[in-house]
Amino acid sequence: MNQQLAEQEDLLFTLDDGIGRIVFNRPQARNAFTFEMYERLAEICDRANTDRAIKVLVLRGAGDKAFAAGTDINQFRAFETPQDGIAYERRIDRVLTTLEQCRVPTIAAITGACTGGGAAIAATCDLRVGTANTRIGFPIARTLGNCLSMSSISRLTALIGPARVKDLIFTARLVGAEEAASVGLLTEVVDDLAALDKRADEVARLVASHAPLTLSATKHAVARLQKRLTQDEGEDLILMCYMSRDFREGLDAFLTKRAPQWRGE
């Protein structure tokens, strides 16, 4: 029997036969995340750590246009002090760490755009199934001029290597499904949305049937192999970007739909 555990306008969660399904439900905004959505995602992961009825989590964006297009730009409009940027990146680090350390396996079912914070969420999941029209990237160098946190850079580097991380961010390009699969950003590619739902469900049921302690031990072992710098070690980089004139220019340019004029200051 399907049990509706939680439902709110922007993020939906259901549990059915051990499979927890999380849907980012803002298709009109390409499923861009509000701060409340980040917090709700962390709450669900925390619940999965103690609720043994949850065997696996599947994350998906509503509609067929996007998995998640990062953080909603409007969340940045109130940024004025150095602490605003630090607090934001600390929030993202905390939520992604909660997702990464979640007791149960996590599967990202990706179609369409998967960018910025959405790509960071997908990269943190254990498995990623995409469709032929999936496009993944971190186009921040041509949009806002901000930066990824040390934790996000660490996870991404461990997943695809330092050279590819630089390539993605320096070029601000979005990687298509075929290339994404070849470099490890996707573990599997299917044709379309219908095939994605079917395959994500198959993988979730397969994983849910396996020994939970084996899966948990493997997750922890892999995490222990990946060096993590402290939040403090990356704060100078966060401040350099978020307190810059370029960040304000990028934000204004994005909201007014014009090309930003970067000054490097």
Rank of each mutant, 00 (worst) to 15 (best):
H220L: 08
D126M: 08
C114E: 03
L59M: 13
A123E: 11
K65E: 15
A259F: 00
D84V: 12
I107V: 13
L185Q: 02
A120V: 07
A109N: 08
A181E: 15
D246G: 02
G176P: 02
Q3K: 06
Y242A: 03
R142V: 12
A66M: 02
S209P: 09
N31R: 03
K198I: 10
F33E: 06
A119R: 00
R248V: 03
N146V: 12
Y38E: 10
R258L: 05
V165R: 06
T115V: 06
I54C: 14
G137T: 01
G18K: 04
E235P: 05
L12C: 01
V175E: 13
T14N: 12
P105I: 12
D201M: 10
N49P: 02
T106K: 12
L185D: 06
P212W: 08
S149G: 14
T157Y: 00
A87Y: 05
I19E: 12
P212N: 11
P27L: 09
D201H: 04
K65T: 15
F35M: 11
A122S: 14
C102G: 03
P139I: 06
T256V: 01
S152I: 13
I110M: 07
A172C: 10
G118P: 13
M37W: 03
A217V: 09
G117I: 02
R52L: 14
P105L: 12
R224C: 12
V190F: 05
D46T: 08
A180N: 07
R103I: 04
I54G: 06
T115K: 00
T34F: 09
R245V: 02
Q83M: 12
L237I: 09
V207R: 05
I140R: 04
G130M: 09
G118I: 04
L251V: 09
A259M: 11
A163W: 06
T97M: 07
N146C: 15
A132W: 04
T124N: 06
F24R: 01
D51T: 04
T106A: 13
A113C: 04
G112Y: 01
L255D: 04
D246C: 02
Q231K: 08
L196N: 04
A158G: 13
G61I: 07
A132H: 07
K198S: 14
A200C: 02
R164L: 10
Q226S: 13
D232L: 07
Y88W: 15
A66F: 02
S244P: 01
L225K: 10
G161N: 09
E80C: 12
V23N: 00
D232N: 06
D252Y: 02
Y88M: 15
G118Y: 06
L213C: 06
D192W: 03
D201W: 00
Y242W: 06
L5H: 05
Q101E: 14
A194T: 13
E202V: 08
V207E: 03
T230M: 11
